[in-house]
């Protein structure tokens, strides 16, 4: 079986459809397409052996192909507060930087996440965060505050967590109990945009930490693969449910590591989605749970593992 690797293609609008067709023909998937003025960014999965071929074909079009470890993941960037007097928020810079590495990021500003004694997390915030592949918590400057408040704002969060804060990595590790999956020190509350080289270096460190955590999850998934590869299911949904193409969201169907978020109203479309024929004689409902998302009225699809369904599409 060919291994699909996440890559980002950056190039001009001119003849970019040829690249899209090529990726399609090679058996790859385009998870996200951004057109910004004259530029096109394609977040995609392509067979490892064919990256060189795409590079070669893209060369006359001045397109470049770079490995993007976070393609096909949806990450929540959680900030204890998005209050106006804390602008510019470091969470914005973090979200933007993760996006450049291919992730789909959502900002989650907690309603009552500030303070160390008074911080808390409500059920909606908890459920929304749990719908992601990973949560990045952008915390503040004081070790004492992180130690006290973090247990409250991580309560019942069962996705991997990467914590950032001003204390160094070792201090964060000491302060947080039980441990989380990743730590990045040196990013606290900063009242300006990330611009100095050492600050940008910290963002690179964060991307590395996030990809390390997600790679561990991918390895675990490889041992018991999903019944269908999420980008593949995404392609099937986009092809068969034509309403998706009429949505104005930047990502009408969002790929996650273990599922999809379809931005159609659950009440009207859930049954259509469940009955969707994924392969000969296999309905989507057989290989995945179709549940209402806590994010607006969207549909959340969680793909079941092969061990449970005995079906591999």
């Amino acid at each position: 079986m060919t291994t699909l690797v996440p890559v980002t293609y950056k190039g001009g609008v001119y003849r970019h459809d040829e690249i899209m067709d090529l990726i399609d023909d090679l058996g790859g998937y385009i998870v996200q397409k951004h057109v910004m003025a004259q530029d096109v960014v394609l977040q995609s999965f392509v067979p490892r052996d064919d990256i060189e071929l795409i590079r070669r074909i893209a060369k006359p079009l001045a397109g470049e192909v770079v490995e993007a470890p976070l393609v096909g993941t949806e990450i929540a960037v959680v900030s204890p507060s998005l209050e106006i007097h804390h602008l510019p928020h470091i969470a914005c810079d973090i979200a933007e930087y993760l996006r450049r590495s291919g992730a789909k990021t959502n900002m989650v500003g907690l309603a009552r996440g500030f303070g160390k004694r008074i911080a808390n997390l409500n059920d909606e915030e908890r459920d929304v965060i749990n719908e992601h592949d990973l949560a990045v918590y952008a915390l503040g400057n004081f070790e004492e505050c992180i130690r006290q408040k973090f247990p409250a704002i991580r309560r019942e969060i069962n996705v991997p967590i990467v914590v950032t804060g001003a204390p160094d990595r070792e201090t964060l590790m000491r302060a947080i109990d039980p441990p989380v999956e990743g730590y990045v020190g040196g990013i606290g509350r900063i009242m300006h945009r990330f611009k100095r080289p050492e600050e940008l270096g910290k963002l690179d460190e964060l991307v590395d930490e996030v990809s390390r955590v997600l790679d561990a999850r991918r390895d675990a998934l490889a041992k018991d693969p999903l019944s269908v590869f999420p980008p593949r299911l995404m392609a099937i949904i986009e092809e068969q449910i034509h309403e998706v193409s009429m949505l104005t969201h930047p990502t009408p169907v969002t790929a996650q590591m273990e599922g999809l978020r379809v931005k159609l109203p659950y009440d009207s479309y859930a049954d259509d989605v469940r009955l969707l024929e994924v392969a000969e004689g296999v309905a989507l409902g057989d290989i995945a749970d179709v549940t209402p998302s806590r994010m607006r009225n969207y549909i959340l699809i969680r793909i079941k593992p092969f061990s449970e369904t005995r079906i591999l599409v």
Binding site: N141, E143, E144, A166, D168, G188, R189, I190, M191, H192
Partner: peptide
């Protein structure tokens, strides 16, 4: 008492007064 926090707040105060 927290040295890391002290440095961070020095920068926060500087940035805010400047802004």
């Amino acid at each position: 008492p927290d040295e890391v926090g002290r440095n961070a707040y020095e920068r926060v105060a500087g940035d805010v007064l400047q802004d």
